[in-house]
Design a protein around this nucleic acid. Structure first.
Lengths: 354, 354
DNA sequence: CATCGCCCTGGAAACGTTTCCGGCTTCCGC
DNA sequence: GCGGAAGCCGGAAACGTTTCCAGGGCGATG
């Protein structure tokens, strides 16, 4: 039990062979059978395990990948993290969790910090993007894969067309006979917020759109409480009265599962039933939405799938120096559950729980 | 735009000073003002950023901390992760996410892997523990902080008395007038499962326990679906009939928020109302439980708090070589919400939603 | 039997950084 | 004006690993 850890030199001395041979024997290449045996034994006796720093310094390889998001508490990112871990871990890579911060400049700082070389690559899902960030990513010293937005050329990225996803939700509601559709979005200056707004505008501007577009309400945040408040604003001061007046819409498209749940809670507060009086759709298909009551109809953006794809892209880049920047697109899929149902001819007195 | 990154030697040459002075100038100690200025300028021109591997090799410091759990998807661990990140990040430390695996031997392997020295310390919350693991932790080459179980001596740990937490839940249900209390637990061979079972046994054996202890049902897992199935088993085949017969209990203590939600879903499936017919308590006080409908009465084990405490313990260990192993205990707190309410005298026909 | 070639081994360099140590200048106080 | 001390700088070593290169032994082939 020495005070410090055993080093390769110690192993070499104990085995009575050279340092070079020791390294080769453990690494498995170009060493005789007896040599391997001998070195292995010595290493085992000393409880040797190779030092990561020395190896990294020499090989210029950290066997670490960074995953950076704005808010690691968000279930979508958690799912991505788990998927990334699951993919890279069997290949011997570790995952370092980092934060992009809210702003584009803090994200730029993050990318710049890759210069220290503590990681072999970066998978990042930024909340806000800009030309400055794109430029910084292009000149980053390690491979970078962006999740969430298809970047123009020269940047690896994997994304889901969330605008089209909103379209799926709108279509679904129309097919159910809903005629007055509202939209609860998150901040418009974020990448997902902007995309989803675009999606709703496009879907409701289409000639096939046979309903009335009520309004868009922008929540402060992509959270449950923000969704609840946004929905309350949308229901207007008139509905604040105790009498369960008829709401100005019979369906709400939410930009997010969290927002959607906030909307349902708000509806519940006012004695409106979901999906009886109001049908609600979410987006991201989180587990939260699945276990919620009513379970949430949601547009899956394939979070785990995106994470896996990004991780694989990263491995391709890091293991083999794959030349061409790639872009992987995941198709949005609508998961129909309890929070949406056909509109009843007479939407009257469906009643709340009590 | 050279092919490779600028090194300290390049900066030294450009500034026309020695390597040693360059390092000192950038590090800020024992360098003249003009020297600092000059080196800073050179570094800036070259876009220098220090190489993590070289620094680590020399200083024996990685500025990384590992956080290892069995299932990173679990909201409790996510909260801990976020808290840990929040604490150590300002001190310049990164967080590496790792997996302990389900078994104690895989956790031992994980601790053993610390021998590579890719991290300055390990914060681990193992699902299962044993003497073998304790022994391995004691001889680990880096500081280890254990979350979840108070370890006997020589090991840093932070824990919450979840057994006492179960006691709080039972007490609360008794105070509400509930008289037939069931318990849905997770696997008993896990650390949390065992502790919570102990808590329930103790609470229901106390002389002040004025109710009937119905049964304990052990779920396969700490998940929603496992909880749903466990609750179904508990309700028995008799209740599988369409008629909403009176259940054999009027309250359920669940070992977990996820299990609790599974229980509520199962109750809902059978037309039982929560909290009308059955009061349900969870544990962990997750955000999921808070937004659920009905919002979940839950025993908070201070996940974020535990994460923060563990992180601070780790920093103490890593920054200053704090000598004494410490143990931090967080008190469980009951958060009362909608899923528990006083028992009605006649528990009849409270009715479901439909 | 000689020569060529292959496989294995050992010495040494290199990766980029921090820090010890010795020597220089400079400044202060007497 | 001089001795001493303090501050600053440069050379060099060290951290632990992988890999290039050269040399030696041995088998196979001509």
């Amino acid at each position: 039990m020495t005070s410090s850890r055993a080093t390769l030199i110690d192993v070499a001395q104990r085995a009575g062979v050279s340092l070079a041979s020791t390294s080769r024997a453990l690494h498995g290449t170009g060493a005789s059978k007896t040599m391997v045996e001998r070195v292995r034994a010595a290493a085992a006796e000393l409880g040797y395990s190779p030092d990561a720093a020395g190896r990294t310094l020499r090989m210029k390889k950290t066997f670490q990948v960074a995953f950076a998001v704005a808010d690691i508490g968000n279930p979508v990112y958690v799912e991505m993290l788990a998927a990334i871990h699951e993919v890279v871990s069997p290949h011997g890579y570790r995952v370092v969790v980092m934060s992009t911060g809210d702003t584009v400049s803090s994200t730029v700082d993050l990318v710049r910090s890759m210069g220290s070389g503590f990681v072999d690559g970066l998978i990042v899902s930024p909340l806000r993007t800009g030309d400055e960030l794109a430029h910084e990513i292009r000149r980053a010293p390690v491979p970078v894969v962006v999740i969430g937005r298809p970047f123009a050329g020269e940047i690896d990225s994997v994304s889901t067309d969330s605008a089209a996803g909103i379209g799926l939700a709108v279509e679904h509601l129309l097919a159910l006979g809903r005629r007055r559709i509202a939209f609860v979005n998150g901040p418009l200056d974020t990448t997902p917020g902007a995309a989803r707004q675009r999606g709703f505008d496009t879907a409701t501007a289409a000639p096939t759109f046979s309903a009335e577009r009520v309004a868009t309400e922008v929540a402060d945040d992509f959270t449950v409480s923000a969704g609840r408040e946004a929905a309350r604003r949308l229901l207007g001061p008139s509905s604040a009265q105790a009498e369960p007046t008829r709401p100005p819409f019979d369906a709400v498209v939410a930009a997010n599962d969290l927002l959607a749940i906030g909307v349902i809670r708000a509806a519940d507060d006012l004695g409106l039933s979901v999906p009886g009086d109001v049908a609600v759709t979410g987006m991201d298909d989180t587990e939260l939405g699945q276990v919620f009551k009513p379970s949430l109809t949601s547009v899956s953006l394939g979070s785990a799938e995106r994470g896996r794809a990004a991780a694989r892209l990263m491995l391709d880049r890091v293991e083999a120096g794959d030349p061409q920047p790639q872009h992987v697109a995941i198709g949005p899929r609508l998961q129909v559950r309890e929070s949406t149902a056909p509109a009843q001819p007479s939407t009257r007195d469906q009643g709340g729980t009590r």
